[in-house]
Design a protein around this nucleic acid. Structure first.
Lengths: 254, 254
DNA sequence: ATCGCTATGCGGGCTAGCGTACAGTTGCGC
DNA sequence: GCGCAACTGTACGCTAGCCCGCATAGCGAT
């Protein structure tokens, strides 16, 4: 699972660092500078990357993995407030100044990522180049997503939120199927498992998705879009506005 | 209402820029540099400072005013996800890179603030000094507050959330009384006005607060602390950890 | 002092989502 | 190909908070 670190322009690398949009958007010199510090890691479903209150050692740039930021209450119940795919990075606190967060981060979809040590990230950030711009804009997008989640949690039904969650996850996934039990989805959204059974049942009866033990397939994306609350569009629009678009942008500074 | 801009060290100024903790924590040279660009403004209850999607012209550093960040849904209902007092600033998007936000900002408690133009803030931020550190740490604290609000909205009762909101507001206020109708509190928390009537009634019967038309007085802060959910403590702790402590720190670089 | 606006109090019916309990079923591991 | 753990389906009562409507009361302006 060694990635070709020495070859920064290997466009045939299925899982090279430039599968991550933020890294891919860097100009050549900045990419080369940080590439030497990137370490490929395989992340397994359920793996906990950050524990509440713990020191953060690494930032993670997913290429195929999807990560989930959530907060676990004293009662044990939890709620996701943002997700991170290959459009972004985990660990904004590292360059924002606090080296810990009060939230947890777990792997929601297994896959690959590149990690970089705290100090290396901070040094790269402090060079005040394109990377800094990209990371700040990404942090802004993450903030919007979190704020929208707060509002959505207040006002929208579980059905709507499930659609939102499915669409956001789908956008980060190459395939139309996610490996995910209802139990896990429930803990992401912070509702009971039965609530997801019911909501997913409705969507399946409507022919929009189909699922079996631990797998959910999206059959009709447009159908989900018709059921979802406004929150999905708001978040998506903000991401599109603030982030590089995923085209291979090496050398294009901005 | 002119503030003594020319005198950067006028410690007798009741409403000088150094009533704002972020500004007060700047070392002398950085303070002087930005002080020339600060413009005192009086903010009235209910005034809208940012409209969703609009271009942001100014950042605001409250000294006595309290501002509220919230999102208004298509249905018209709304939900606050963070508040800003003299511990912070409004407009983190200005230095994060997006010059707009999808959320609204309104004045929750009338008072004074200093505003600074977009460009001036960006220039000061890009000097990569203490101001940059402070603003980034503040953005991190704001993020934590927003994430916590998302979780709280999901899992805690209106009673608990009212306690949280009262305590957070109180922390930003010199007095024990807030000018605020139940209707307004309701729109902050994103619940019905009757829900607040009921919750506030309970607190009043318990002798913790007393209120009359448009005024809420806190009688027993410790009582509120006994009723509040964990979210208050989490947010407060994170603010204490990340932010300057409000002592007059001019000259102390960090 | 009175009027009128607006804030607050209250009640009744309703629904979404919770807690709990248990039954059915699938697919993995041996 | 068997067993079993784990995932999914269903049901029932319960409560918080919603929507709606209307009654009362405080406070400011005339």
């Amino acid at each position: 699972m060694k990635a070709p670190l020495f070859s920064t322009q290997n466009s045939s690398a299925q899982n090279g660092p430039n599968q991550n949009y933020l890294l891919a958007a860097l100009p050549r010199n900045e990419f080369d500078a940080i590439a030497a510090r990137l370490e490929p890691v395989t992340l397994a479903l359920g793996q906990m990357l950050y524990e509440p209150g713990g020191q953060l050692r690494y930032a993670y740039f997913p290429t195929s993995a999807i990560l989930s930021l959530h907060y676990v209450m004293e009662s044990g119940s939890s709620a996701e407030f943002a997700g991170v795919g290959n459009e972004g990075m985990l660990g904004v606190a590292l360059f924002m100044g606090g080296d810990t967060t009060s939230s947890s981060a777990v792997v929601q979809t297994g896959g690959q990522a590149y990690r970089v040590e705290r100090r290396a990230l901070k040094e790269a950030f402090d060079k005040a180049g394109i990377l800094q711009q990209l990371l700040l804009r990404y942090a802004q997008a993450l903030f919007t997503q979190t704020a929208q989640t707060a509002a959505c949690n207040r006002h929208h039904s579980v059905d709507q939120q499930l659609c939102r969650w499915l669409l956001l996850t789908l956008d980060r996934l190459p395939a139309q199927e996610l490996i995910m039990t209802q139990e896990l989805v429930a803990s992401m959204l912070g509702v009971r498992r039965e609530g997801i059974t019911e909501a997913a049942g409705k969507l399946q009866r409507a022919g929009l998705i189909s699922y079996r033990r631990g797998h959910i397939s999206v059959l009709a994306r447009t159908g989900l879009e018709a059921h979802v609350c406004e929150c999905y569009a708001v978040v998506k629009k903000e991401f599109d506005r603030l982030l590089p678009d995923g085209r291979y942008q090496q050398g294009a500074a901005g």
